[in-house]
Design a protein around this nucleic acid. Structure first.
Lengths: 213, 213
DNA sequence: CCTAAAATATACCGATTGGTATTTTAAATA
DNA sequence: TATTTAAAATACCAATCGGTATATTTTAGG
């Protein structure tokens, strides 16, 4: 049997599971500002941008975040996780390791047309801005990149173990080369606003992956 | 014979060829601020940064530049030209087309250790910051990248014509892939502060270039 | 429905931003 | 050497920056 105390406890718990008011606005702020931070960068995004995008006041923002830094960090995390989710979903549909690797090439194309993220790849943007200026932010991107590298390496290793790939393949090298080609392709094709540039580079990447067999 | 009028004219001309005072300080400002713009970005560099780096006052800076934009544009041009000069010099020492292509791979390594530029590759930094925010700056990077692409393509075409490379090679694709790999490698290895990452990606690039034959 | 607490808005703060008008200093010409 | 011109420094400007203290509103619990 459930007594009054437990009743109340459960209610509060459920209420918080469904999200408290503050948590809702916190998430709302993150969702609304994440694309702005990704396009204008950390230094280029002002508190005015944040209040404008959310329709909230400075007081409300600072009631949920200690400072601009915290908003930026949360926004980056949101962007990075959004990408990871999309990747994992698309990857689950692929059977072969080569197929899984190519998911990145296909999915990152959405970064060019702003369907996945406004402003391009958050890893590229944040890395180039923060590497020499913002240690905390840099730390997060570093974690995301190393994670990505680990993930790719693991796929290559699996492919080698299952004899899908050649034994001589260096998993770390394949992972790093893929990351470099993808990020470099994003930079070039977003700058030139030419999707065929993306396609040509990804064609090279696909050839490289085929050569792993 | 030279009359007085011509005398004075020549003197003024020579004086200006040797550089007027204003041109000297203009160049001084550009040289001193170029690395700052490259590390902190356009939005992250303030006029205070500029006066601090040069030891000059705001009045002096604005006597030589109309606004912050002009300093940033001149600084970018300076950085880009500095790179182009280094490339051309190193390339002249190479005989084969493959050798000339690999000059990029070797020379850009200096971007990691800050011996060539503080803050990494100005093309990568400026492209990722300005592509959605600063049309003028974006235009300049775009020009530099397209020029680079053209330069690389021309080398590949020459290699094909001289039978050094395979006839089936797509020059534009090779050029774009090289640019992407180099810029992506800079992003990754600067972020991770791991030069072996650079070496592994460049090893992949070298393999790709060897396969052109 | 009333009260306590949480969340948001208002009003303000000093510091810094990019930029300018004016004065002072340095350089060049007559 | 005196005078004109160019360059640089000083002093100032409104606007915006990130941030905070306080007042008001909204939400939840008894």
């Amino acid at each position: 049997m459930i007594n009054n105390y437990t009743d109340r406890y459960i209610f509060v718990l459920l209420n918080h599971l469904v999200m408290t008011k503050a948590e809702k606005t916190r998430q709302f702020i993150v969702e609304q500002t994440a694309p702005i931070f990704n396009t204008k960068g950390y230094a280029g995004t002002s508190l005015n941008d944040i209040t404008e995008a959310t329709g909230l006041t400075k007081g409300s923002v600072y009631g949920n975040f200690a400072n601009k830094d915290e908003v930026a960090l949360a926004a980056f995390d949101y962007n990075a996780e959004k990408m990871a989710t999309a990747i994992n979903k698309a990857m689950a549909e692929q059977a072969t390791m080569a197929g899984k690797l190519l998911v990145y090439a296909d999915l990152y194309r959405a970064l060019l047309t702003n369907t996945l993220h406004q402003g391009g790849c958050p890893l590229l943007n944040t890395a180039t801005e923060a590497d020499d200026t913002h240690p905390e932010l840099r730390k997060r991107v570093l974690g995301a990149i190393l994670n990505w590298k680990k993930h790719l390496s693991a796929l290559v290793i699996k492919g080698v173990e299952s004899a899908e790939f050649n034994q001589k393949v260096n998993p770390e090298q394949v992972a790093l080369t893929m990351i470099a080609m993808i990020e470099g392709a994003i930079m070039v094709s977003r700058l030139t606003e030419n999707e065929s540039h993306w396609d040509l580079i990804m064609d090279s990447l696909k050839k490289n992956i085929k050569q792993l067999s």
